[in-house]
């Protein structure tokens, strides 16, 4: 919605002559030339595949033999597939947990760094760095950190006389362990929050002070509303990203123990590239797309009640 606003603002330059001039027509031709690469990519790698996967989802296809039309069979199978529900639940659990806690951690870090402390850039580096190093090296590192007997976390817990759980071995601890790991990367959204905090107009705080507001009131009534668009952006992007990421899980647990970390993306990957059931994998993928769309729409609808856009004050 915000984006739409911005688009409209920038497009508002006049182009409304009833008949387009030669210049305008040339500009239009040039526009399409400049974006031609993306159009090809969009058709070949985004729109085409989405439509294709919709068609494939109604077939049975192992790639060895030609696809066979099976109607809605894949979707019927999906309704009775316990692993489908497990994967959906796991992904939502991880998504809500990692995005929710990530929001709190990164926002708190940003608030701390916004206190005009000396050495802010050093601290920013320290918090931001883990979010830059991703991929397999991190997965391996965290396998070690979360190890039941020799891991870093349980060693630290042992100092305090606490016997830590088998993080990646016990089904009830596996998802919390992954969420904990995701918090290590909170620095990425911290930087966005920090930038947002620094652009909150100072005079709003001064006005609040004059009205006798304490620190909490200022936070509640100035910081949070002014930051709500940034928080909203991070929620949307973070949730979509969390539903997609499964490579770390693939390496660390491969969905185990007892399917406790079988994420939706991992399930699709498994059905497609290990069982070679392209039709069923496409059906699952489409359901994921629908789920993401529903959640995004719900977030946009909910945003009305808590996201504050400066430009909308007049309404």
């Amino acid at each position: 919605m915000a984006v739409e606003q911005r688009v409209n603002q920038t497009v508002a330059r006049p182009m409304d002559k009833p008949k387009m001039g030669k210049m305008a027509r040339r500009e239009e031709r040039e526009f399409y030339l400049f974006i031609a690469l993306w159009i090809i990519g969009f058709l070949a790698f985004d729109a085409g595949p989405i439509l294709a996967s919709f068609v494939i989802s109604f077939t049975n296809w192992s790639m060895m033999s030609p696809p066979a039309w099976v109607g809605a069979l894949n979707f019927q199978r999906l309704m009775t597939d316990p692993l489908f529900y497990t994967a959906l639940w796991n992904s939502l659990y991880f998504g809500v947990g990692s995005v929710g806690l990530g929001l709190i951690v990164s926002f708190l870090l940003a608030l701390l760094l916004n206190q005009k402390v000396l050495g802010i850039s050093l601290f920013r580096t320290v918090f931001y760095l883990p979010s830059v190093v991703s991929g397999i090296a991190v997965a391996i590192l965290w396998i070690m950190i979360l190890h039941q007997d020799f891991g870093l976390i349980n060693s630290v817990l042992a100092w305090f006389g606490i016997k830590g759980p088998g993080w990646l071995v016990q089904p009830q601890w596996a998802k919390p362990a992954l969420i904990l790991m995701s918090l290590w990367g909170a620095g990425g959204s911290m930087v966005i929050y920090l930038a947002g905090l620094q652009s909150v107009p100072q005079h709003l705080y001064e006005a609040a002070s004059i009205d006798g507001a304490g620190p909490w009131m200022k936070f509640r009534n100035v910081t949070v509303p002014m930051m709500s668009p940034v928080i909203f952006y991070n929620l949307i992007v973070g949730f979509i990203a969390s539903l997609q990421g499964f490579v770390l899980v693939l390496i660390m647990t491969n969905g185990g123990p007892a399917n406790a970390t079988l994420m939706f993306g991992l399930y699709i990957y498994r059905v497609a590239f290990q069982f070679f059931q392209m039709g069923y994998a496409s059906a699952l993928a489409w359901i994921l797309l629908v789920v993401i769309m529903i959640i995004t729409v719900l977030q946009f609808l909910g945003a009305k009640y808590w996201v504050f856009y400066e430009g909308e004050v007049a309404k």
Binding site: A44, P49, I56, M63, G265, I292
Partner: peptide
């Protein structure tokens, strides 16, 4: 989500 397009991309 990338998962939606990985199968058709692979086919392509």
């Amino acid at each position: 989500p990338r998962e939606v397009t990985i199968v058709p991309r692979f086919l392509l």
